Amino acid sequence: MRIHLTARTRHFTVLGNEVVRDKRLSFTARGVLAYLLSLPDGAREDVRTLADNNPGTGRRGIAKAVDELIALGYYVRRTVRCELTGRVRTETHVYDVPQTDPPPTRPAPPPPPPPGTGDPRDGRPGESPEGVKNRGKEPSLPAGSRWLVRLTAAEPRLALGAADAAALAPLVEPWLARGVPEPEARGLLTAGLPPVVHSARALLANRLTRKLPAQRTPAPAPLRECARCRDPLPRRARQPLCVACDGTAPAHPEPASAQEAVTAHVARLRALLRGGATTASPVLMT
């Protein structure tokens, strides 16, 4: 058997021979491990998606292969608690070298004090009274930091620590001042992320500065309407009725007849032509 290898400069995965030849793993488990190690950091894969994207083995076979990887330390699940929100989530880690150390677990609760030593809620060894008062509360962060953490909580690639969130708080203030809705802000900050985010703090600082929406001008207030005829009212009007409905409109005397109107109009035109009038009256249309 002759082996032919191609020199690659991109899109390749390096695996040690001791991994692909590990006889403790089945061929299926080795294939699953190689596939997982070829994915970018932050990819979301589980037994269901592995079986759906790689037909031929089925979920039961994939689950059995994952169990083999877990038993040898290639596939490790860890439970972590977010220091900002206090929520507990499970993270999956895939290694190209078996991990012999057991994965860290959630610390066990402290044992109860011996009888007669007082109420265990009074305090813990080395804990100050202020710590007892604030026990169970989330760390105090600026409003901008809490807003940012809330928007990016659903994206693991943008997970922030307390120090990073506090450092980004000044960049969040313009967003809050301009009243950007949270759905719009979430789309601007989390959409189109690269496959690998090396620094969530640097990426968010760039997007908070570059994608800040323009200042929105408030919409003008709608015009008031007459309570009777629904005609628009002037903006400075104080009465609920227009001048036509409340009877304050000036009355224009109507001519007694059409002949008198024509005669009066002709007289005004003659006066205008002779220079006796300073303003022109509207032309009478018949």
Score class of each variant (00 low, 15 high):
I3Q: 13
L208Q: 03
E260I: 08
N206C: 12
L37Q: 07
D164E: 08
R81V: 02
Y95L: 04
R30K: 07
P120H: 08
P194M: 01
P104A: 15
R2G: 08
A7M: 02
P255W: 06
P110L: 14
P181H: 13
V283E: 13
R59G: 11
L269K: 14
Q239A: 10
A277K: 12
V266D: 12
A34D: 08
R178G: 11
N134T: 04
R44W: 06
R186V: 01
Y74Q: 07
G86A: 01
V262R: 09
A108W: 15
L84D: 05
K133H: 14
P40I: 03
T117L: 12
C245H: 01
T92D: 08
A154K: 11
L33H: 04
A249Q: 10
N54A: 13
T217K: 13
A191H: 02
G42Q: 00
Y95N: 02
P111W: 15
L273K: 07
A163P: 00
P104Q: 15
L84S: 13
A185N: 09
A159E: 02
Q239C: 10
Q239D: 11
T286H: 14
R150G: 13
R87C: 11
P255M: 07
L158E: 01
R201G: 10
I70K: 15
A258D: 13
P220V: 00
L204W: 06
G73W: 02
V97Q: 06
T85P: 00
L193R: 03
R135K: 03
L72R: 08
R230F: 05
V80L: 12
V132F: 03
G144F: 05
A63M: 15
N134A: 05
E254W: 06
R121A: 11
V47F: 12
E138A: 14
A165D: 03
R2K: 07
V94Y: 11
T9L: 10
E130W: 09
R2S: 09
R44N: 04
A153M: 06
N17H: 15
G179P: 00
R201P: 02
A71K: 15
G61T: 09
T117P: 03
G192F: 07
E182I: 01
P156S: 13
L158S: 08
V80R: 12
T13M: 02
A34L: 03
S199N: 00
T190G: 01
A165W: 06
